[in-house]
């Protein structure tokens, strides 16, 4: 309401008004831009260390949750040549290698994603090379329906599936020996099957697909570069 009134007064060119001089406009815009830039940079500098620390704690918590026994982590990225330590110009998807208190390799956490009922669900899976299986899972981002689809993150019986989910490789070491699949509730017979969950069929399928795709992508590289990963102990 008020804006309309204002616009009317603005649009009335007074008698004899000149074309506005451009210098004050330039001066004002430049001045405000400088002030704005200064403020943003100041705040950015002040908050950057805190934000980085927050992010580190958050990832660490997630990694330690999916890798039981891990107390420290080292970041790697999956490049086309295999796994390489993060931060040396290596570009690719991040994986986190977890180590126990005795500097012993406890496992590798890697991300997975699949389309669920509402939107893409993002997961973090923990893989233990010792048992060649997935030992933990965590939903990082999900918009599944509360009470139905979000059971994949809360239902303890369903999460049991991800405590020792077989992800062993074929003899050539290039792909999973058995694809990870979701089966109907109560019909799980093999360690690479996920026992379904009633009321969250689509979300459960998405989680199985995400686990399978992620394992297919990361596990062959992890097994090949296992020595390199173990040597990276902090």
């Amino acid at each position: 309401m008020s804006i309309k009134v204002e616009l009317q007064t603005q649009s009335q060119p007074g008698p004899g008004t000149q074309v506005a001089p451009s210098w004050p406009m330039l001066r004002t815009l430049a001045g405000i831009a400088i002030l704005s830039g200064l403020l943003v940079v100041l705040v950015y500098q002040a908050t950057k260390p805190i934000i980085t620390e927050n992010e580190r704690i958050l990832t660490e918590q997630a990694v330690f949750e999916v890798l039981p026994g891990a107390v420290s982590k080292v970041d790697f990225v999956l490049t086309e040549q295999g796994l390489a330590p993060a931060g040396e110009g290596a570009v690719g998807m991040a994986v986190f290698v977890g180590f126990g208190a005795d500097a012993e390799l406890r496992g590798v956490a890697f991300p997975g994603a699949a389309r669920g009922y509402q939107d893409v669900i993002q997961f973090l899976f923990g893989y233990d090379p010792a048992c060649e299986c997935i030992v933990g899972s965590k939903v990082l981002r999900s918009t599944e329906t509360p009470g139905l689809g979000d059971k994949i993150d809360t239902d303890p019986v369903f999460l049991e599936n991800f405590v020792a989910l077989d992800a062993s490789l074929n003899p050539a070491g290039t792909a999973l020996a058995n694809p990870i699949v979701l089966v109907a509730h109560g019909t799980k017979t093999a360690p690479w099957q996920i026992d379904g969950i009633s009321g969250a069929t689509i979300s459960g399928k998405a989680m199985a697909r995400a686990a399978n795709d992620a394992a297919e992508r990361f596990v062959p590289s992890i097994r090949r570069d296992l020595a390199k990963l173990a040597a990276a102990a902090p």
Binding site: S36, L39, V40, T47, I50
Partner: peptide, 21 residues
Amino acid sequence: IIIIATFVTIVDYGIQAISLE
């Protein structure tokens, strides 16, 4: 708009620093 955007950016960083959750 520049002035408002400046303060929004400040709030954006501030909230990230307070809690990422």
